[in-house]
Design a protein around this nucleic acid. Structure first.
Lengths: 254, 254
DNA sequence: CCATCTTTGTGCACGCGTTCACAAAGACAT
DNA sequence: ATGTCTTTGTGAACGCGTGCACAAAGATGG
């Protein structure tokens, strides 16, 4: 750990820019919606609008995948769905384990967006013996003691961590040791992983803080807006000193 | 609803780059942890390691806020905590409403990371009459009919959407009409909002799809191994880029 | 077959973000 | 004071991502 030096030299995965990869799921969702409405073809302009991006960007993104469009017509929806799915690896089955079955873990287990895209919740794991055996989203919760066996028996390579912050690194280490090479982390902690292991982080409070920053800026500049005093919240008198409020937020209080 | 402009206006918010703003919460968390351990000062190198970023990047980030460090010593932890909190607008109270109290909404309501950073869940809102009146995380759920009144009475400017995809746009429109100017969207949909409203998106399935892409690539490059290709990929020393600092992505602004 | 129209695919330029490398600044010891 | 040591703050170079603008490619109609 302590990745002191040699950071990633280039972030191009097989010639496809990382930024493009991050948008492919967006296109895929829009295309899937079109497919369900039996729309045969779509132009870059239309699809871009549906995905909320610039049409030039979309065309460039697709150009990295190959030339799948027809000039003067657009893109074949079904064909493009297949190509993007294949590129993202969604044509195969990805068994996933969720560790930490609190409120968030349960929400994830129930989330329908997984199964519809090749992800299969292979197991739910929690350290609380009281949960063991109970079913969440129709899947029985298993105890952390069996983590390694579960990973290996199911050939799991993607793990989701939804534990409290304090347990995240330990769980991460065990997942990696057992063979997991991709981790989606919901715990508010920086995880250390060896090279070759991908970690993506989702942090609910960080997103809100970024919004707060912009919100504060908007409120501050609103003093000059022509529009009458908006009903927007007035900057309340600060008072709550940072205080040592239990910062370490447990993702779930069991 | 002409164009779904959900991407940031690329406006250098008060001279502070967007990328820097996105990292400030990361620094803040690391600093808070140091503060609780009564560490008086910290060097850019140490703090960068704790936050999982490059030290040069961290110093440049702080340089946008001003010169808060002492050469030869480092940064005063308490002072920096205050400066970043103030910059992010966390020294004031931010009432927030959560719309859609399903599994995810409940998880968010219970999430401890909000209250500890100036965010206060002012209300929970759901369209299901069966939920109305029931308490989740100690907060009574109110009906969607009262959405506008709740927003205005509480001076809410930040809304969290955790509804099914089909209801998201409608909820969004009502929130915006009632005065909300920042939205955190968990529904898998592209929201259309007028200028001046910020939207940040968190999409669980998109993150997994991005991981799957890299996972597939790793597996594909390992095909050279004599093994017939078992489903379980072995963590192997490989030049898998994508450094340890998994930045958000999609959310990126998504 | 030719003209015209539509839409893709991409060369190019620009700006943002990242990283390096080092001078400036302060602490500390002598 | 002076020198040495540590660490910040930043100028500059570089690479990536984005968006413009247009030529190429194919459809379509006469």
């Amino acid at each position: 750990m302590a990745t002191g030096r040699t950071h990633r030299p280039a972030t191009r995965s097989r010639g496809i820019p990382e930024a493009t990869v991050a948008r492919l799921p967006l296109y895929l969702r829009a295309l899937t919606a079109l497919s369900e409405r039996s729309v045969p073809t779509v132009s870059s302009e239309e699809l871009a609008a549906a995905a909320g991006v610039n049409s030039a960007k979309l065309r460039k993104d697709f150009s990295y995948l190959g030339s799948y469009g027809t000039r003067g017509v657009g893109y074949d929806v079904e064909y493009l769905v297949y190509q993007i799915s294949r590129e993202l690896g969604l044509t195969q089955d990805w068994p996933v384990v969720i560790v930490g079955i609190g409120n968030l873990g349960a929400a994830l287990a129930n989330y329908g967006g997984f199964a519809s895209r090749g992800f299969r919740v292979a197991a739910l794991i929690d350290a609380d013996p009281a949960l063991t055996g109970r079913a969440v989203a129709g899947i029985p919760v298993q105890h952390t003691d069996d983590l390694e066996k579960i990973i290996q028996d199911n050939g799991v390579s993607i793990g989701v961590i939804a534990t409290p912050a304090g347990a995240a690194q330990q769980v991460c280490d065990r997942l990696v040791a057992a063979g997991v090479t991709s981790i989606l982390n919901f715990a508010p902690t920086v995880l250390s992983v060896p090279d070759g292991v991908d970690v993506r982080k989702v942090d609910l409070s960080i997103e809100l803080q970024i919004l707060a920053f912009h919100e504060q800026r908007k409120a501050g500049e609103e003093a000059a807006t022509p529009d009458g005093g908006g009903p927007a919240a007035v900057a309340r008198k600060e008072s709550a000193d940072k205080g040592p409020d239990g910062d370490v937020p447990a993702v779930m209080p069991a």
